[in-house]
């Protein structure tokens, strides 16, 4: 594994904080996009040697996560004239502190896991757990449908990082499958966003509770 992977993972963690601490929707989307690109680069570096397959994974990951999905979200923002504030349920400072506590817990917890020798010292597993937690946090604490999408995206990024530890063993197919899954998920979300907007002329998921009766 390349020595640059750990610093890149730290950048991923920093982007998690950026996601949790920022009040601007665009900045949330850009952070998730940057995470996607970083993951693509990492997929290349984790491999011992560069093969056509790994380059394919890298390029497709970077393009889908870093360009296509964020582009779609930005377009959704523009088309639906979504306001640029994030509208969290809890304040930014508590989100940050929760995210930090989660990351700390992930780091300590990963230390207790029986990992393969080559992953024991690396940040791959704790960063993956922390990113999944950050994704959940975004999903739980943000009101807008579009931030929900970003939450899923971050969640999936966490799972992807975990997948990097298995890259030697895991067939490329599974990885592409995950990517496809995500793509379909986002696609469905996009449609839902459009529907919510049309029905309620807003994107606040809290309005969905009006559907329950």
């Amino acid at each position: 594994m390349h020595a640059a992977v750990d610093p890149l993972l730290v950048l991923v963690l920093l982007l998690n904080f950026q996601l949790l601490g920022t009040s601007r929707l665009r900045s949330v989307i850009f952070s998730s996009a940057a995470q996607g690109v970083l993951l693509g680069v990492m997929a290349l570096l984790v491999h011992a040697e560069v093969t056509a397959a790994s380059v394919l994974v890298m390029v497709s990951t970077a393009v889908v996560k870093g360009l296509f999905i964020p582009g779609m979200l930005l377009r959704a923002m523009r088309d639906n004239a979504i306001r640029r504030e994030v509208e969290p349920r809890i304040g930014y400072l508590p989100s940050l502190v929760l995210g930090a506590a989660g990351t700390g817990a992930a780091l300590l917890f990963a230390g207790t896991l029986p990992l393969a020798a080559e992953h024991a010292g690396s940040l791959l597993v704790p960063a993956s757990l922390a990113t999944v937690l950050a994704g959940f946090l975004v999903l739980v604490t943000r009101r807008k449908a579009i931030t929900q999408v970003v939450g899923y995206l971050v969640l999936e990024n966490g799972i992807f990082i975990m997948g990097l530890t298995l890259l030697e063993a895991m067939p490329l197919l599974v990885e592409m499958g995950v990517l496809l899954d995500l793509f379909v998920g986002i696609f469905v979300m996009g449609i839902i966003i459009n529907h919510i907007t049309r029905e309620f002329s807003s994107m606040d998921t809290a309005r969905l509770s009006a559907l329950k009766d």
Partner: peptide
């Protein structure tokens, strides 16, 4: 501004966790 400074605290706090874990 407090948010920024708390972020700085968290960053260094992680530095510690990374170094000392």
């Amino acid at each position: 501004v407090p948010l920024l400074l708390v972020t700085a605290c968290l960053l260094s706090g992680f530095g510690i966790v990374l170094v000392a874990r």
